[in-house]
Amino acid sequence: MLDGTKPLVRVDDLKMHFPIFKGVLRRRVGEVKAVDGVSFEIYEGETLGLVGESGCGKSTVGRALLRLYDITDGHIEIDGSDISTLSGEALRDMRPRMQMIFQDPQASLNPRMTVGSIIAEPLDEHTNLTRKEKREKVAKLMDAVGLARRFADRYPHEFSGGQRQRIGIARALALNPKFIVCDEPIAALDVSIQAQVVNLLEDLQQEFGLTYLFISHDLSMVRHLATRVAVMYLGKIAELAPRDALYADPKHPYTQALLSAVPHPDPAGDRQHERIILKGDVPSPANPPKGCNFCTRCPKVMEICRSETPEWREVDAGRFVACHLYN
């Protein structure tokens, strides 16, 4: 299935470091290595799940990918164009192809704009539609995400969390993007509404042939949605594998630990399940440990882990892992 499709997104050694300034003179004293060299590809029409603990750099990957940041290093190619160094107009021209749905539906909508104008604004900017056409398009988008058309003149604060996220989705869809980064789109929502929104995302993917990078820390949701899954730890990807393979046989000790914490859907399942508890805290991304960045907490740590960074390698067909255990 994977072999037939071509990659839509190609990320190579992406780095996003945020400088840290201190003191009266605001001298640069270091940097937060929020993303420190990640490489992956996303195939057209697939959903790549990106999971990891809070603060490991998932959102940063998503934003850097869409060039909402000026990246520190690496290459990003979307739909055949290298966007890693684009800026200004050239970058703006790329925007319609790639969109993002944000974690916090409340904060990501301008409180002073009506829903209609929030959805229509990208159309003003990137298309030459007439007013009427735009209104029609907005109405259609609202239909598509399940919002009543009459809400177009209301302000975001007048909606529930689930509805707001639908507005955010409609807005992201307005320019017919190919690729959408969903940054924990359901994390801020009630469990009952989460399913609705996820279903909506799935339906839209079918309908418009979308490609998703689905960021989440909810492993079961990712299992439900994703084609392939990448596991991040402290700015790096530890493991990337097709969904079923990953859930059935996690290779990286960190993945194993993460999965062991997920309540198993079928307790009498194939594998006896033992919970692995990680010790210690996540190190600061401003000061990651030498060698493998998981070495401070890894239950299977070896001498080499503390001195050498493990290579990112394909250990099986379509299965990538960065761990000295597989050398």
């Binding site: 934003r63 904060a107 990501s108 990208p122 900017e125 320019l175």
Partner: peptide
Amino acid sequence: SQDYVRTARAKGLRERT
């Protein structure tokens, strides 16, 4: 630093806008 500013940028608006 609000999220909606990021949204606006993601929409592909001009920086001035």
